[in-house]
Design a binder for these strands. Structure first.
Length: 316
DNA sequence: TCCCAAATAT
DNA sequence: CATATTTGGG
């Protein structure tokens, strides 16, 4: 474990807007992430059937890849908001004392993106989000239902909360890596990879280089559209949009995809039914993280409590 | 019971 | 779209 990249690179790149160093940058922000070998093969369910039944775990019917995608978008929005608030606050206090030009954490979550609307499914997803309040005019409702029956139904349903478990992050990371591979294949020219990476471009249904650098176990069996933890018919169509969090590894130390649970807390232990006892914790240097969760879902970090604090620069 | 991420409302 | 508020997982 812990091969990855040396910190020096991180420092060098940090704060720069180098558009070309994408590969390096990727490597940088990937610090601490599970290596390909550690990821569960996409073709595999995260929870073995026996175990699942033993614990009465069933695939979540509502949670489609789209849900996940949407959730990640939401998360991004929320995060963005929090970061903005946070950084603006910091500016003030800093500047007041130093009178310096601020060079704060330039949070560039950029690339909102997501709208990968292959065949309009994207707009649908957006619609689904809305859960109109009860006192909605019936007139309006009629109108809505006119445009799309399914949206009308969905509107009244509350979306189940999607919790970004470490496993879920892994599954996503998995996809991201696939995507990366793919981009490496056809890029070398064209827009900056980093931009594209998060352009939510859906992965093609087939991956030419399934064997690629993987070398690693079990990667040989890709080519499957979208083996997400939750199976769902709609999936058949192809990849869901890449729900990655903004420009990973850009100015902001990294917004990596996995640390969404930027600060889940203390006081709760979590049992990982999924086995995966291989830890992804140790080797990572946690600069100034307050609270974080390792890949096993264990909590670690300071217990100091900072209400509404979002780790600004967690280098996983 | 509390914290806070995720969802929802404005 | 940005922010504010609510919900609910843990």
């Amino acid at each position: 474990m812990g091969e990855e990249v040396k910190m020096s690179e991180y420092e060098i790149n940090n704060g720069e807007d180098n558009i070309n160093g994408d590969d390096e940058r990727v490597a940088v922000w990937e610090i601490g992430l599970p290596t390909p070998d550690d990821l569960t093969p996409l073709s595999q369910t995260l929870i073995p059937p026996e175990l699942a039944s033993a614990f009465s775990i069933f695939p979540e019917p509502h949670r489609t890849p789209l849900d996940v995608s949407r959730a990640s978008q939401t998360t991004l929005s929320n995060l963005r908001g929090q970061l903005n608030a946070l950084s603006s606050i910091n500016f003030k206090s800093f500047n007041e004392t130093t009178g310096q030009t601020h060079d704060p954490i330039v949070v560039d979550l950029d690339d909102k993106t997501g709208a990968v609307d292959r065949d309009g499914s994207g707009s649908e997803a957006r619609k689904l989000r809305r859960v109109d309040s009860e006192e909605e005019d019936s007139a309006l409702r009629a109108e809505n239902s006119a445009e799309d029956p399914s949206s009308a139904a969905a509107r009244t349903l509350k979306r189940p909360r999607l919790v970004w478990t470490p496993q879920l992050h892994k599954s996503h990371l998995q996809k991201y890596r696939l995507y990366l591979k793919r981009m490496q294949g056809l890029s070398s020219e064209g827009p900056s990879a980093s931009d594209q990476l998060f352009a939510s471009t859906p992965l093609p249904q087939s991956f030419p280089e399934s064997s690629g650098g993987g070398g690693g176990g079990g990667n040989g069996n890709f080519g499957i559209p979208i083996p997400m933890p939750y199976h769902h018919p709609t999936t058949a169509g192809g990849m869901m949009p890449m729900p990655v969090y903004g420009h990973m590894g850009m100015q902001m130390g990294n917004n990596n995809c996995h640390n969404n649970n930027s600060s889940d807390n203390h006081q709760h232990h979590q049992v990982s039914i999924n086995g995966h006892q291989n830890g992804y914790n140790g080797n990572v240097a946690h600069g100034h993280m307050l609270q974080q969760r390792d890949w096993n879902g264990n909590h670690y970090g300071s217990y100091t409590h900072h209400p509404h604090q979002v780790a600004p620069n967690d280098n996983m």
